[in-house]
Design a protein around this nucleic acid. Sequence first.
DNA 1: GCCGTTTTCGGCCCGACTGTTTTCAGTCG
Length: 574
Amino acid sequence: MKNRELSKIFYEISEFLEVDGVPFKPYAYQKAALSLENLKDDVFDIYKKGGSKALQEISGVGENIANHIEEYLKTGKIKIYDQYKKRLPLKIDELTRVEGLGPKKIKILYQKLGIKNLKDLERAIKTHKIAPLFGFGEKTEQNILQGIEFQKQNKGRFLLGQILPVAEDILENLKKLKEVEKISIAGSLRRKKETIGDVDILVVSKNPQKVMDYFASLPSVKKIWAKGKTKTSVHTKDDFDIDLRVVPEKSYGSALQYFTGSKDHNIVTRKIAIEKGLKLSEYGLFRGLKMIAGKTEEEVYNALGLPYIEPELRENEGEIEAGLNKKLPTVIELKDIKGDLHCHSNWDGGENSIEEMANEAIKRGYEYIGISDHTKFLRIENGLDEKKLLKQSEEIKKLNSKFKIQNSGFRILHGCETNILNNGEVDIKNEVLEKLDYVIAGIHSNLKMPKSEMTKRLISAMKNPNIDIISHPTGRLIDRREEYQLDFDKILEVAKQTKTILEINSAPERLDLRDLYIRRAKEVGIKMIINTDSHQANQLDLMKYGVFQARRGWAEKEDIINTNSVEGIKKYFK
DNA sequence: GCCGTTTTCGGCCCGACTGTTTTCAGTCG
């Protein structure tokens, strides 16, 4: 889809404008980029149906940006974007991703030292050229170096949320070919790891050559690394690699099992096969020359004396032992989710009204939605104060009585996302918090506190009798920012004592709690909630990423409170 | 460059924190 390509370009234009010091425009381009990123319909279809006028219906898109979109759809180019790239030949997305490096510093580094990309930057630091620059210093130099190191650790990996939609598009496209009898994603993408290196796709076909040819000719393919009879590797326009393999139907299960991995998981399954006098490979499970399983994964696992193991569990983290002892968890599924309690409305600058958010939740089959706007400390997010919160309560009451009249069981719950201040208190008075259905608290400032202070800060928030949920509890941004320094075991202990719910935030760059923490929390007996943190209605669809993460953390339906109906979930609130 | 229950023109993007300075610019949420 062109949506993603355009969104990426508009983000970059926004960054160029910032480097240039242009006021306000960057914000406009960012908004348009965000809208396109989350747009359900193909922007090309919108344009075909309604032309430029229809494009301007997209939120954040006006006359000018609509013209840019039109230009791109017609010519594949956007003039001002190309001009910027010529004038400032920077790997701008690469540089802005370094923590501590913003547009102003990037501009100075380019003008004074000709730094265009990460490589240049690293070389300049190693030769101590940065610290002497005006406005820079020793500390800044070190901070930038740390930012680079952190980025390098995750080099070449993509967020699950970036890559899954693209891979699914390609899968849909391949399905159109009648020679494709069966098809599945394999590899780490099927295991739903939070970051993905490259994409593996497995196909059953009697005519592999036809599949190879079609795959290699897809419009999203930029470069073909290798193209053989049953395997083709390509590099896509979205800058990741895809390996496609074609196998015969009788080997589909064993091949899927093999290519899904993980490698460690497979080593153990092959060992079990050997112990039973069998041999397991991507071609099947064999006793001597006789194939005894291979058509389905289930068949393969069962023949090894194991139940089917969900892909998200296949990390050799105890799932084999649990399988042998019949102790595998029945992991949660998306359809178990009955509502989303971390959603922002246009009251705090989100995209949609409360009613629109509610209607979108209804569309997704939910029984309830929770509105939890930012509170007053976060001025940039138009945080609500006590007065506005009470006013918001009135609106929610009205909407709820409307649902009642319509005889709909749907309910809006009223919460807020308060800010945990340095001393562990939150920025809304208790007498107002008491009146809400539930209260979320999160850390949004002073993220670099020392471990003991940060732990104390979070603990005192959990002890607040009005706080029910801690949002994004560790504050990490995948590939970009480390977690806060926290004594996590202590946090778990207090969460258990105070019956505080920990959030699994579904935003693909957060996925916070991470899988290992989810598993630890479950073991301790702490309840969790999967929320999207939506700032616009389309983001409600991010719920699946939180569910994937919960599954990777072995969470079952009972561990997650928003699998309950309205009355059920209320019991978990203090 | 976008947008309008305060507006078709004038707002939007504020405040804490850090590191650099010696009163403030840049970054981040």
